[in-house]
Design a protein around this nucleic acid. Structure first.
Lengths: 194, 194, 194, 194
DNA sequence: CATGAATGAGCTTTCATTCAT
DNA sequence: AATGAATGAAAGCTCATTCAT
């Protein structure tokens, strides 16, 4: 039998990121993804049940990674909540800095999954919960203004980052990742501090 | 009088907002927009050259309106830059508060236009420039930290607002517009202040 | 607007019979049906929701017609049950004699509908019921052997006719319709008589 | 010994009957047949050149068996033509009674072979010829009406049986095989007798 | 002989856009 | 201007068949 050479599943995910980033989810053709991955169209369906499943897995992998790495931040007791938030921002910025195409896909195509609640990987919600728990911790310790809504805050931070990262990924000449990172931290940390 | 024709064009735009908000740009059918507007499918093409043109006009109209109203804020000399920014945030919040469906469309479908630079209405860039000039003014007057990047800031504010407004439009029971507005102001104004 | 010329729905049904007869339901391509009907592929879907719906309508139309015409036979009081059966056989034979392609479709593709009970037009069951009621009448009047099962009989007659009509439609040189009709009547009527 | 290989071929045929009966020829997947047979998909092609060949062999085996067994009936001189026909009917009924799935396949999928004359196993025609020769014998001996067409008769009997057996195989609760057998014999034998 | 991953042609269905009326 | 029937290109997905191991 023909043995799987290399890791075709990963090839498809990589190709998916490229094609989704370039064309958007709906314009992306499976045949183009297959071609980019160097396999036949039909082979895509050996690894993923449909186009959405590819996008879903891209998301899942990203948040699984970020969630895992953020766990280390969460449990540290040598830094306070605001410093933890800074690390969280760094985590996200670093991830996307190393994979601009992934950034574009995440920012622009996330809503294709969010229309159907089932498609949102639970791991994503876990990641958001982590951020939320840091904010709550900060409020308890008097570092973060108690009058601020946790729900609003977590979306505010995510939203800002997403928008900026998309800007950076599409026009890296207009803003560097470090500049972006520094500004975001400055605003949020100063703004959040009581 | 041209009221009748003018109305029909507006009917299509209103229908477009409804249908785009409900189904997303790519899933939205022209036939559904026509039906919602109370006209025949083919008649849509008497007013708009294609589906994208409808979305484009929705954007243009929004930013035209916001741009026009923000002019009044910009020229006031009785308030400082930070207060002007507060008014800008109010302007945007009020607009979307009165038209949640529009909010959903703007937030989720904007990237369908941004893929092609030609499709971005110049008026949108003018609006961003207004915000930028307020920030620069604030930096000159020593109200806003000079080390912050104007370009990053303007996208940061827009991005945050967009994400939060989308949250509010889709799940108004989770967060009120006033809560949202208060939080955003608190963070940005405190964060921006030197 | 473009006005419907002719009867496109009927054109599609006629084309469907031709193509289903030649290629079988599963091999039949919608594009071929459209071509045969002289319209564009997509236009088929203005009249029928899918391929199965075309087959379904072909069946429905046939049995509607046969059911309607058999009503006249059923209510006659100048002929007995066996004579009524003879007329029923004539009815079916005449119908198919005038439309051999329809015969092939009915005989060979019926089971594509019968897999899903919902797809069987109720009118077909009504037709079978008519035949059954004639047999019961004949049994009551002592013309038909009481020991024969009505259920078996009605399927026996239908099954024989279907098989023979298919033979005739595919190889008309091997057997004439009149020969077929005469033989069927002879066997069943003599066989059924007490 | 070659038992092992012989078994595998038979496994595929048995699996084919199951899958064809359940899903129909066109919906039946080779992979499903392989799985049912307990072998790999590709292995099917070591024994059969394609999907149609499996169906073809199922037919061939059936008619080979029936043809062989009917030879014994044909040469008997202790019973007349009508009694021989009765035995032939019993033969067919018994065969299907012991293999209802086979019955379903034979009845519903036969036309997939009959579209191409080459695919019809010659042995099938030999079986029909046997039936024909019995009828001719009966006509010579004055037991069967001379005015009846041999060709029509042989198809009439086969067709009736097929349709009824399908009914029985699919809804055994509605009619027993013995009831079916009794009815068929009664009608044909009485109907055929001069 | 056996495997099952890989192939890719093929087909149904959708829908933005056109155009005859 | 208005209509809505008609168009036909386009793409997701299936699965019989192949073939490298």
């Amino acid at each position: 039998m023909r043995i799987k050479e290399g890791n075709k599943e990963q090839d498809i995910l990589d190709a998916g990121i490229k094609v989704f980033a370039a064309a958007g989810f709906h314009q992306a053709k499976i045949s183009k993804i297959a071609e980019t991955a160097g396999i036949a169209t039909g082979s895509v369906y050996l690894y993923f049940s449909n186009k959405t499943a590819i996008l879903q897995r891209i998301f899942e992998n990203l948040w699984k990674e970020l969630n895992s790495e953020s766990s280390d931040i969460l449990i540290r007791d040598d830094i306070n909540a605001l410093e933890k938030l800074e690390h969280l921002i760094d985590l996200v910025c670093d991830k996307f800095y190393n994979d601009p195409l992934l950034a574009i896909v995440i920012v622009n195509e996330q809503h294709n999954l969010f229309k159907d609640d089932e498609l949102i990987p639970p791991i994503y919600k876990q990641f958001l919960d982590k951020g939320e728990s840091i904010i709550i911790q900060g409020q308890k310790n008097g570092l973060i203004d108690n009058s601020l809504s946790v729900k609003v805050l977590r979306h505010l931070i995510i939203g800002s980052l997403k928008y900026l990262i998309d800007l950076w990924a599409k026009k890296p000449e207009e803003v560097t990742m470090n500049e972006l990172r520094r500004n975001v931290k400055k605003i949020f940390i100063t703004g959040l501090r009581k």
